[in-house]
């Protein structure tokens, strides 16, 4: 027993700082946050009266918060769909070795290196639905103008200034920024498929489509799952991009829980802010815990 402890001891000791830090900064704070969310601390003045789940029921009944959940749903669907489609398409095109492959890969990946705050500066412009009156009459701006001049005027729209679907416009720059990352994940997946497997399928007379349907896609599904988890949880947390594109923090149109939490925090409504945080955590946990469970199971096998 003592001998075993001697073997494990140093490892546990080396891991101890991280375990303590994560224990305090993740788990203890989650509990503490939950505690605050059950109090009536709605102003800067400390107040610890226990109110049960009142803040949660109030939030869920609040049309503003309901709208932010709707926005979050739309954002996540468009963000996920967009990055998966472009990421897969690019990886699929680049999968066979080609001249200049490195160049294309770098270009597709580069937006990922830029902060949402920096890219938000230009996207705020591109997604502007303003009509500026210049000499020469009403002129459209940004992407609308580009669409107009290439003959796709029908696709012009008011982007994020639409209360129901405006949030989908916010997903456009998010897709722009992270499709390259999903491409890199899919490329890794493609490279992980042994050539023999494809050869075997071809020799057996598989058509291209059947090859994809029965060999490639099943082999890619773990990568796809990782991509869904990574992008999905980024979408649930998305905050800076919205703040950068829509300057007015209190805007209703593109409010999501993450930005609403900020508004509550600025207004010193700590209990509500904490409650929104906990709701976000629950949403993320629904996605992530099965995934963590699945991967740790898969590893044991």
């Amino acid at each position: 027993m003592l001998k075993r402890a001697k073997i494990w001891g140093p490892g546990v000791l080396l891991l101890a700082p991280t375990m303590i830090l994560v224990g305090v900064f993740v788990y203890w704070l989650i509990i503490e946050n939950f505690r605050v969310s059950l109090t009536n601390q709605h102003t800067a003045k400390p107040s610890n009266k226990y109110v049960g789940f009142e803040n949660y029921t109030n939030l869920l009944a609040d049309p503003n918060f309901q709208h932010s959940l709707w926005n979050l749903l739309i954002l996540t669907i468009v963000f996920l769909g967009g990055t998966l489609i472009f990421g897969f398409l690019w990886a699929w095109i680049l999968e066979q070795p080609a001249k200049g492959e490195g160049f294309f890969r770098s270009v597709y990946l580069f937006p990922m290196s830029v902060s949402f705050i920096a890219s938000g500066v230009v996207w705020r412009w591109l997604l502007s639905s303003l009509q500026t009156s210049q000499p020469g009459g009403e002129r459209t701006t940004g992407l609308n103008r580009l669409l107009d001049s290439v003959g796709l005027g029908a696709f012009q729209n008011d982007w994020w200034s639409n209360p129901t679907w405006g949030i989908a416009a916010i997903a456009v720059p998010a897709v722009w920024q992270l499709s390259g990352y999903v491409m890199a994940l899919f490329l890794a997946g493609f490279r992980g498929i042994p050539d023999e497997l494809r050869e075997a399928a071809r020799i057996d007379g598989c058509t291209e489509w059947k090859l994809y349907r029965h060999v490639i896609f099943p082999q890619l599904s773990p990568v796809m799952l990782s991509a869904v988890i990574i992008i999905g949880h980024m979408s649930l947390k998305l905050f800076d991009l919205i703040r950068a594109i829509v300057p007015d923090a209190n805007t209703y149109d593109v409010q999501v829980p993450a930005t609403m939490m900020w508004v509550k925090y600025i207004g010193s409504d700590y209990a509500d802010a904490a409650a929104i945080g906990t709701i976000l955590l629950v949403l993320v946990a629904f996605v992530v815990i099965p995934y963590l469970w699945y991967t740790s199971r898969a590893e044991k096998r």
Binding site: E32, N33, Y265, I276, G277
Partner: peptide, 11 residues
Amino acid sequence: FIPYQAVMIPL
């Protein structure tokens, strides 16, 4: 994976 919003207030 945690949304940092879920720890921000006590943090």
